[in-house]
């Protein structure tokens, strides 16, 4: 029973780490070029990964992750389905619905959307900018923690480097889905997963090259539909 509590604590702590990261290396750079923020957060990610590697006992080795999910599975029309895949799918969907609720149905969600569109106008309308940005980072980092836990449950092990591929894949999924759209991330994530699996199945030794194929498609998307599948074309003000 302690494990679910640990998970909840881990999500909470990761969310708070996200807020701290924002306070340390996003907000102070608000006036600088947005690319500086990107470089700073990427470097902070490096610092966190290296800290785990160096300071966690035997940090370079993969760590076993507790198996919680029901093992085994069943077969439908020749397709083997594992119970744990179903559970992970369910949790993922629930998380998406929850995010959608928060973004589209709550006051904080309205504030987040307002800040994303017009930070200055939102502030004049009485939105507390700092708190809203904090909330966004808490939410985003907490969700990343959920993804990390699910990944640990699925593979039964975790590794200090696992986050970076996950992060890049996550951004790619959001980008091909359409940034700024909750459902875009779902569509993009599914598409990415389908591409990986198809590549693994169709290409000889495809399981090694599945990320290559998926990223290649992401690059094509950025060329031909830079706004993503569900994204609105944004117009820059001159």
């Amino acid at each position: 029973m302690a494990l679910p509590l640990t998970f909840a604590a881990s999500i909470l702590v990761t969310g708070l780490v996200g807020v701290a990261a924002e306070r340390v290396c996003v907000k102070p750079l608000a006036r600088a070029s947005p690319l500086m923020t990107l470089l700073a957060t990427l470097s902070l990610g490096l610092v966190i990964r290296e800290s785990v590697l160096i300071f966690y006992p035997r940090g370079a080795d993969p760590k076993p992750f507790p198996q919680l999910l029901p093992q085994g599975g069943f077969e439908v029309g020749g397709v083997a389905i594992r119970y744990e895949s179903l559970v992970i799918l369910g949790i993922g969907l629930a998380a998406m619905v929850a995010v959608d609720r928060v973004i589209n149905r709550t006051k904080m969600g309205a504030a987040i959307r307002a800040v994303a569109q017009e930070p200055e106008a939102a502030q004049m309308m009485g939105v507390n900018l700092d708190r809203t940005v904090d909330a966004t980072f808490f939410l985003g980092s907490g969700l990343a923690a959920v993804a990390g836990i699910l990944s640990g449950l699925y593979y039964s092990e975790i590794h200090f480097i696992m986050g970076i591929t996950g992060g890049v894949i996550g951004f790619s999924a959001a980008a091909i889905g359409g940034l700024g759209n909750v459902y875009g991330a779902i569509v993009g994530g599914l598409l990415f997963g389908v591409l990986q699996t198809t590549a693994a199945a169709l290409i000889p030794r495809g399981s090694e090259f599945r990320d290559v194929v998926a990223f290649a498609v992401v690059m094509l998307f950025l060329v031909f539909k830079p706004s993503g599948i569900l994204g609105e074309k944004s117009v820059e003000r001159v």
């Binding site: 947005p34 690319l35 890049v168 790619s172 992401v218």
Partner: peptide
Amino acid sequence: VPILKTRGHYLALVTIAFVFIFNILMNN
């Protein structure tokens, strides 16, 4: 070339993906 025109963080993220692709390819 096709991606150089895209704005914001896309190019940066694609270059990160490219490092991973390069490593996967060299390894395999």
